[in-house]
Write a protein that binds this DNA or RNA. Structure first.
Lengths: 150, 150
DNA sequence: TCCAGACATTGGAGTCATTCAAATATTTAA
DNA sequence: TTAAATATTTGAATGACTCCAATGTCTGGA
């Protein structure tokens, strides 16, 4: 398992360190996780890590395509290890909960803007905003400007 | 024109002030504009305004649905006065340019996630990432972590 | 196995966009 | 015209990163 991850890093030309392995592992503990939470999880696993290293590791891993960074407005960035498929996100305006949705319309519409105006598009990012079942049930409404990160 | 905007505010139950009129006007000068640029434009129009008032006015106008805030990751928030239609954005990873795209697939796919998992969805936000024609022509590639706001 | 160079991690400081609180000023309804 | 409601301003603070330089750790080659 740990070896798997080390190999994965090596395959992507990324130097293997305890911090990076732990960060990668932390990202896989939850569907979506903030840099802060990654730091907490990693500290539980390997004792200590600086927040800067967390950011750096997350950046390297994201650049290699091993994890994905999503950045819902008003929330700190979230990282997920579900990559390579074409999935999107449902985000609750009240509690900030983020859940994955498979792309309903298949690959095509999500990779093309229709009229790309000369752009070379490499990614389509789709966020559906609304209220999650729990907040709906409690009839909770969004605060003026607020969602807390998961 | 100015009266039009004043009426528009009143119709939405928003108190009319010189600052708000100027902010609303500033947002309509460009397809997408940052809070900072709004402040600059407004200062050219009415002399002075605090940045906080700009943020406040933008917040009020956005809450009323008169303008829309978009927040491309890595960039400060952008505001646009094109509201009420279902349009999306092409964003250049190199220069940060943002251009509008009409929704290619019509209303339906953009309002439904397909499997909404109990969410009540009120908005679908779609961002297409890539390189704009100019950056393509010059073969400029994205910096590690960078796009400057327009 | 050892070494040197490359690369990673760390601490500290700093930036940027944005928000908060309290005091003052302006708008609006009566 | 006036008072109450609401905006604006000033000043300070916050959160989420990012940069730099120094130290530490990996890794491929001898």
């Amino acid at each position: 398992m740990a070896t798997d991850r080390a190999d994965l890093l090596r395959q992507h030309g990324i130097q293997v360190t305890a911090q990076r392995l732990a960060v990668l592992s932390a990202v896989s503990t939850q569907p979506h996780i903030t840099a802060d939470s990654v730091a907490e999880v990693v500290r539980g696993e390997i004792g200590a890590i600086s927040l800067q290293s967390v950011y750096h590791a997350l950046g390297v891993l994201a650049a290699a395509g091993l994890i994905r960074r999503i950045q819902p407005s008003g929330s700190p960035a979230l990282f997920e290890d579900r990559v390579g498929d074409n999935h999107h996100h449902l985000i609750c305006r009240v509690c900030g909960r983020v859940v994955d949705v498979d792309c309903a319309t298949g690959a095509a519409p999500c990779l093309s803007a229709g009229d790309e105006q000369g752009f070379e598009v490499d990614e389509a990012e789709v966020a559906y905003w609304g209220r999650c079942p729990d907040c709906l049930a409690q009839d909770r409404v969004p605060a003026k400007r607020s969602r807390q990160p998961i």
